[in-house]
Design a protein around this nucleic acid. Structure first.
Lengths: 202, 202
DNA sequence: GTCTATAGCTGGATAGAC
DNA sequence: GTCTATCCAGCTATAGAC
């Protein structure tokens, strides 16, 4: 038998859909209530305010964006394998949650200073540190070219995330169909890693 | 003597600042009027509605993002030189208009289908086509590895634009100062081109 | 062209019945 | 827990004086 979905879950799911597409300012509590098939009163019964509801949605989104990344970054595998795994699993995660990057960066930019602090304190950077060290070791050993570890990380992340954020522009300018676009994204799971390794290996 | 700034210009400048930072939904006509040191009535005298004012701001932003890019893409220079020039001039342009990418992509995503059409019709893709052809020729000649031209373009653009969009996250997670960040961006004017050429040259 | 005042609506939040 | 009704603040847009 189908598991009964609680009202609270229905609200959260609806709120995610609306907030992800329209952002905090563009979202309407009425629209969220409609999508959840309840009324505004009940919405406020579960989540005291729009801010509170938004906070829940945002924190989940941030976690979806960072936890997988952090997980892979910490694994004890060799650099090239890690880059391959990183790109593949990250693009896979984002393929399921296509709207997350746009949503997250949009909201961060409404309040940049707050988030800089949040990232500094948060444990987001454990994985990054492990990865940075690993890059520096390989550079010292001479297996890869001399490159600033932060720059390399920025390159990998950029190529993995940006295509999701630029989807409508890419489709329009590169004259793609929805299917073309999907294919391109899927190909990137291998391509971005190859490209990166080509660029840095000696 | 100092050129007198017309009221209309003052309004546009103020509107850009507010819209770029807060987006259409987050922007308030009152705030724009305050920044321009006029009252709301006068705002509506020059620009009939918030929509109209927004449209002006958005179209300028889109142009700032695409025209330089398109210009370089069409030049008749060899592939590697073009990549170098492309990255350098593009990062330079965005360094002056840091908020443009976030603003543009946020607004595009509020209305993706409308913009897909706009890009299709617009002459945005002339340059892209020239560049695609050039890549394919070099691939055929064997001077560079076999790579889908669209994927290569996506990589270059991703590495050029994304760091601006992710600024607060980068500063927080990579533990940078504002100065570090500026240095990293500046270094990327050369680094991204080198990285790309390394990745594709045989 | 520029200002003040205000109309008119929208949307978040609460009260209170069931 | 769930609903309806309603309050009230905030916002765009307009009217009208100067």
């Amino acid at each position: 038998m189908a598991k009964k979905i609680s009202t609270e879950d229905k609200i959260l799911k609806s709120a995610q859909e609306i907030f992800h597409h329209k952002g905090f300012e563009g979202a309407r509590m009425q629209e969220i209530a409609d999508k959840a098939e309840i009324n505004k009163g009940l919405l406020h019964y579960y989540y005291k305010s729009k801010d509170k509801l938004f906070e829940s949605v945002f924190n989940i989104a941030l976690k979806q964006m960072l936890s997988k990344l952090n997980e892979v970054l910490r694994e004890e595998i060799d650099l090239f394998t890690k880059i391959e795994k990183l790109v593949d699993s990250y693009i896979t995660v984002l393929s399921i949650n296509t709207f997350i990057p746009n949503f997250v960066f949009q909201e961060i930019n409404r309040n940049p200073d707050f988030f800089i602090e949040k990232f500094r304190k948060f444990n987001t950077n454990e994985g990054i540190k492990v990865f940075e060290k690993q890059i520096e070791e390989e550079t010292a050993k001479g297996t890869i070219i001399k490159i600033d570890s932060k720059q390399l990380i920025i390159n990998i992340i950029s190529m993995s995330i940006f295509p999701f954020m630029a989807k409508p522009m890419a489709i329009g300018i590169l004259e793609l169909t929805e299917k073309d676009y999907k294919k391109i994204i899927d190909d990137r799971k291998k391509l971005v890693a190859k490209f990166t390794i080509n660029a840095i290996k000696k």
